[in-house]
Structures are given as structure tokens and as C-alpha cells.
């Protein structure tokens, strides 16, 4: 465990908590892509099947269980509890365009052709693109509430810190995970445009982020 990894995990946790608390407090999921949240729940489910096969540490187990529970809670709030506030008209990204290539790639490029390894690879590839329905929704409506942008900021920060973690691990442990690093870098690129807007608009005190 290095400082980048820990900070990355904390950012990830903060992002998910921000979203959950926002939905709970405002009793609304307006502007939130339910599709992205379902994809994230699928990411955690397929990746953390290793909870049943290997024990790494108490930290590892607790964080995995917390991520799983919170992602399912978010999906529950959007599609069940506050479903009448769910903005389905603007959440129109076609997820099959993500799922089909991601499923195909995880069968082609993996560390071992076993169900658990294919599912692990699937989760890594899917996480790289899971935010696209949310970014698509913001582009479509042309705006995002600042709290939604804080969520996206911490999610992007988590990805950036994981890259720093891999650079650190490469130099100190000679660890290099090709699948995770390549898709992690791709994923981080999706946030760059958003980061620019976040710094130039939201951090200058705008209540909403309006796209140019």
C-alpha cells in the first residue's frame, strides 16, 4: 500500500458517498445516469467475486464489501425509491454499444481463459467506459448540478491517483499489469475534458456547470 493507492481508494469512496448522500438528501436523482450506476454495480460484482476465492487483507475485504453495498444502494435509490425523479428521457445512452465490445474484448484479451479471469477482465474494461452514459447525459442536457460535478471530480481523481500508484509500483516493485494500466489510462482520458470544465466553471463558484 502506497500513499497514491490509499488516496485513490479514499477518493473513490468519497465520490460514491457524495452521490449517495446527494440522492438521499435531495430525494432526487435528477441529472444522474442510472445506466452508469448499473454498470458500476456490474463492475464491482464481476470484479469482487474474488472475495470468495482469495483473502488479501481486512482492508481489502471491507472496502470491496462497502463498494458493492453502496453501488447497489445507489441503484436501488435511482430505480426504486426515487424512480419518479429519474430522468430516463435524458439517460438514453445505448449501453449495448459498450457491453458487446467489452464482452468480446474480455474473451480475447485476458490472463487466463477461466470464468473468474474473464469476468475480472470484463470488469476492468467495463469500468473504463462505465461513466460514458453519465457524460453523455451531461452533454445532452448541457448542464450538471455542482454536486454531480464534485462526484465526477472525485471519480476522475481516483483514476489519476491509481495511475500514480502504478508508476510507483512499477519503480518500486517492478509490478506492471498491462490490462489494468491500459484501460486505466483510457478511462482517465475520458475525464480530462470534464476536469477542464470543472476547474474553469464549477470551482469559480457557479451553482451549475453549463456547457459552452
Amino acid at each position: 500500500m502506497n500513499v497514491f493507492r490509499l488516496a485513490g481508494d479514499v477518493s473513490h469512496l468519497v465520490a460514491i458517498i457524495i452521490l449517495l448522500v446527494k440522492i438521499w438528501r435531495s430525494k432526487s436523482c435528477a441529472g444522474i445516469s442510472g445506466k452508469s450506476q448499473v454498470l458500476f454495480a456490474l463492475v464491482f460484482t464481476t470484479r469482487y467475486l474474488d472475495l470468495f476465492t482469495v483473502f488479501i487483507s481486512a482492508y481489502n475485504t471491507i472496502m470491496k464489501v462497502v463498494f458493492l453495498a453502496m453501488s447497489y444502494a445507489t441503484v436501488y435509490l435511482i430505480y426504486m425509491r426515487f424512480r419518479n425523479m429519474y430522468d430516463s428521457e435524458n439517460d438514453t445512452f445505448r449501453v449495448e454499444f459498450l457491453l458487446v465490445p467489452v464482452i468480446g474484448l474480455s474473451f480475447l484479451e485476458n490472463y487466463a481463459f477461466t470464468p473468474l479471469e474473464i469476468l475480472w477482465t470484463f470488469s476492468i474494461f467495463l469500468e473504463a467506459v462505465a461513466i460514458m452514459p453519465q457524460l453523455f447525459m451531461i452533454t445532452k442536457t448541457g448542464e450538471a448540478e455542482s454536486i454531480t460535478t464534485h462526484y465526477l471530480f472525485f471519480l476522475g481523481l481516483y483514476r489519476a491517483l491509481y495511475i500514480a500508484n502504478w508508476v510507483w509500483r512499477y519503480h518500486t516493485e517492478e509490478f506492471f499489469d498491462q490490462i489494468a494500466v491500459v484501460s486505466g489510462v483510457v478511462q482517465t482520458i475520458f475525464y480530462c475534458d470534464f476536469f477542464y470544465l470543472y476547474v474553469t466553471r464549477v470551482l469559480r463558484g457557479k451553482a451549475k456547470m453549463i456547457l459552452p
Binding site: D50, I56, N60, F67, W120, Y162, F175, A180
Partner: peptide, 10 residues
């Protein structure tokens, strides 16, 4: 090993 590291990262 490399595999354990993968399962260690979240």
C-alpha cells in the same frame, strides 16, 4: 505474485 497484486487493488 502478480495475480495477488491484481486482487489487492480495488
Amino acid at each position: 505474485s502478480q495475480e495477488l497484486v491484481r486482487h489487492d487493488e480495488l
